[in-house]
């Protein structure tokens, strides 16, 4: 549905986006990650046809955004960063206006506005002037605007920014549900969100694409992926460490914390070892220790994120 090839954008002499390519199919939710100023919003602005491309190409469905902007834009819904809105009009008036410019008429127009208001739980503020709304409601109004015409492609820049926990939860479910029938791109700084809704992740740093894959693949890049965390009662760390290091499957053991005689340790597997947890469990049972926690780490996205994005920066300097 979305096909971005070698996107390039210059701001003066500063290259904001450099050679970024990806595509998104129907049924995929692609997450954009990257530190502040990485170029996520700039990339989205190019895909939606707001900014002209300095290089590369974008296709939405069959349509090139450069050659057939109107047809391409008709297929897209866009939630810009910071949810810009017209302050002087009511929520309903605003949605009605956008729906009209989306080409919805008569019954379709009414239905679309009503449905968007319901989906985004805007009933209580539908007649209020947008200026007087709280940030979360404003964000939801702008979100409602992006799904009015039930587009095949949805581009959302930080869709859960400013929402309360309940609304965040609902928004994620909504995006996930819509993701089954649409091609969606979201950008976010909340890494749990990636786990919750994205089927694929892209990491952008300094305008360049530095990672592209499934969330699980990305997580596996983490140093602690595959390590086992255990909590053992009434044993000093030295003793535990001694015992575990004797095992050939264990590469190294670190102490996470030790308090009130309860010790949390993390054991890292040697190369090509799987089911370390099972083996450790056996060893612990043999020693007759009281095991209160045993868990294989999946790896954490924030570790991977920090690694990818800060090492790149370090190299440059």
């Amino acid at each position: 549905m979305i096909e971005a090839k070698n996107l390039k954008k210059w701001y003066g002499t500063n290259c904001a986006v450099n050679d970024v390519s990806f595509d998104v199919k129907k049924g995929e939710v692609l997450g954009f990650l990257g530190p502040n100023g990485a170029g996520k919003s700039t990339t989205m602005r190019m895909i939606t046809g707001f900014l002209h491309l300095d290089g590369g190409s974008v296709r939405i469905g069959e349509h090139s955004i450069e050659d057939e902007p109107v047809a391409a834009k008709a297929m897209m819904g866009y939630l810009p960063e910071n949810a810009p809105l017209y302050g002087d009009v009511s929520v309903e008036g605003f949605l009605g206006y956008i729906a009209k410019l989306r080409g919805l008429r008569g019954q379709d127009h009414k239905g679309a506005v009503a449905e968007a208001i319901e989906t985004c739980s805007l009933e209580s503020v539908r007649h209020k002037t947008i200026q007087t709304l709280s940030k979360g409601y404003r964000h939801r109004t702008c979100f409602a605007q992006s799904i009015l015409h039930d587009p095949d492609v949805l581009i959302m820049d930080e869709p859960t920014d400013g929402l309360d926990p309940n609304q965040k939860y609902e928004m994620r479910n909504l995006i996930k549900r819509m993701g089954e029938r649409k091609a969606i791109i979201i950008s976010t700084h909340i890494l749990e969100e990636v786990d919750a809704i994205c089927t694929r992740v892209i990491v952008i740093n300094n305008g360049e694409l530095v990672a592209d894959g499934l969330p699980s693949e990305l997580r596996e890049r983490s140093k602690i992926a595959g390590a086992v965390t255990m909590t053992i009662a009434r044993q000093p760390f030295e003793k535990i460490s001694q015992r575990l290091k004797d095992m050939t499957e264990v590469d190294k053991v670190v102490c996470l914390d030790q308090e009130n005689g309860v010790c949390r340790v993390r054991a890292f597997p040697a190369d090509d070892v799987d089911d370390l947890a099972g083996k450790l469990h056996g060893a612990v049972a043999q020693s007759g220790w009281a095991l209160t926690e045993l868990r294989t780490e999946q790896g954490r996205l924030d570790d991977v994120f920090r690694e990818i994005t800060s090492s790149e920066e370090g190299e440059e300097k």
Binding site: R45, T48, G49, F50, V70, A71, K73, A74, M76, Y78, P80, E81, N82, P84, L85, Y86, G87, I98, L101, R102, G103, C142, Q145
Partner: peptide, 14 residues
């Protein structure tokens, strides 16, 4: 100033 131009110019109008 408010960024609504981003909405306006991503709508399917010329």
């Amino acid at each position: 100033q408010t960024g609504t131009i981003e909405l306006l110019f991503t709508l399917p109008i010329k």
